[in-house]
Design a protein around this nucleic acid. Sequence first.
DNA 1: TTGAAAGCGCTAACAT
DNA 2: ATGTTAGCGCTTTCAA
Lengths: 336, 336
Amino acid sequence: MVSIDEVARLAGVSTATVSRALSGRGHVSDGARERVRSATDSLGYVVSSRASSLASGRTQNVGVIVPFLDRWFFGAVLSGVTSALMRAGYDVTLYNITADAAVRQQVFSTFLRRQRVDAVIAVAIELDDAETAQLLDLGLPVIGVGGPNPRLRTLTFDDTAVARLATEHLIGLGHREMAHIGAGPEFEADFRVPSRRRLGFEQALADAGIPANPALLEPADFTVDGGYRAATRLLSGSGPRPSAIFAASDEMAIGALLAARDLGIRVPEDVSIVGIDGYELGEFFELTTVDQFPLAQGERAAAAILAQLEGISDAGTVADLPYELIVRSTTAPPRS
Amino acid sequence: MVSIDEVARLAGVSTATVSRALSGRGHVSDGARERVRSATDSLGYVVSSRASSLASGRTQNVGVIVPFLDRWFFGAVLSGVTSALMRAGYDVTLYNITADAAVRQQVFSTFLRRQRVDAVIAVAIELDDAETAQLLDLGLPVIGVGGPNPRLRTLTFDDTAVARLATEHLIGLGHREMAHIGAGPEFEADFRVPSRRRLGFEQALADAGIPANPALLEPADFTVDGGYRAATRLLSGSGPRPSAIFAASDEMAIGALLAARDLGIRVPEDVSIVGIDGYELGEFFELTTVDQFPLAQGERAAAAILAQLEGISDAGTVADLPYELIVRSTTAPPRS
DNA sequence: TTGAAAGCGCTAACAT
DNA sequence: ATGTTAGCGCTTTCAA
């Protein structure tokens, strides 16, 4: 590996000048800068991040914590994060918090603490107090994306409001017997998104003076399969069939669509279905949804972190993330 | 940040002994090891990867290059890679090669060369000669996953054989008028998977003595949307309608399924459809497919890299990746 | 088995 | 604007 000394020698300057020319910190004459540039070019020199980070304390690397990699939503967020960060010259180190508790603990107790990253972005992870404390203890810029965390700077997505919006859309169409697929005790473990969405559903019902019916709350795990099974129970049960279903994610909504299809129940004639996310596949099913623009969420998180790292102001207002109701063809007024 | 000196002082040994005790390299008495352990515990000490990697040359970090993050297949592979690597104590730094040529170039010319990683895994990326050379020039263990690259160690997925298998399944059912959705000149840019799959299709036809019909080759971009549009052209065109469609990915196959549905064409009665991947959503459509177990692909790539890094033998035979035909309900004999 | 000490390749004062 | 030099916090000879 070619080192800074060789560059300095070839350019006829000191290593300090090479360092200054390359990093842009401190003043360097145009001539020196040019000779350094040509020397690095001909030598193919790249600054060693190990040496540079040890000396400067900066790694040019951001850690990103995500709970899943094989779900569209997280892939989209991550895609937005990496493209923005790479464009700014940063590497992205990925910490995938899975069901494995030991690995999860190791991420907070070891991986994040070994000084490999300058900042951390946590995507849709519900952190317990100890984990939040460990993150804060890093002394690095940290930003959460998704559920609010009062102890962290967060790009907040107002799940409750989004769920209300979806539910009010159904109410506005005239529905009264509405079911919800989403939060259930067994899926509460990780991030509180599910329960916040259910809360919004319940609030909208209450506001409209519609009594809550526990029989119309079906827990599911946010997968297509989970949505399918939940909808099957709702639509083929012995009780009265709901005239509309609000699923807490598009993947579950698609599962519900498929369940209705398999049961010979027409959408939206017999039952209306609405989801949340903006999952691309939803378009094919003409799914009514509330888009939450995950790619843009990732880009905004990256921009916020970069602003903090480069010290550009206290960093553009950590506001709420946008969302938008997209009415397509899976919702309509109830029949009767 | 607590440093190794504090640990050494508290444990009553030298920093060299702390280093040895923590890394497991060199001999340390049980007593010393125990005192070091208790000192690190009470101090909450974690070895600084910046200092450690500068001194040792090892980073405990593996770079992973992927072309997409928002497609299920790549998320699944990445999931397998990260879980295996994290379990072994490695971090994973992600390089997302997007359409942006400048960023792509930067990955090879700068990001990968700044000594942040001990090894590189390249997932389903078709590298040109210059890029391959740059990777090799790193002097690190490198492994490719997917398309064969004669100049790289590769976990090869035999796309041609897989495509033949899918096509032969259709031929075995009695189909003669088969269409293919996949490779097209405009999507050839990046990885040659599309054309290898088309090749397998053509080989199977040739072996069965079925003449190739260019009108039955529809290019598409591997998305559901692309599959939908390609199938729409095939199924609603003026020419004779194919009795079966082989799509080069499950997402395109699902698009084809949806197109058939929208055209009122029954599957498999009027047209058979088969895909490739093992995409979870395929189950809901009863899609016949060739599963390629992406999660396992990622785990195997990680295991191969770890074996090389830890010097465990020349590393378990870089064999072909497994695949399996899963016959469900979207394929059947043609009508007549 | 342990310790002393010389780097690893940069950056950032401090001087000039 | 530039050079000199003392670290950054470890690992790894080399000796003992």
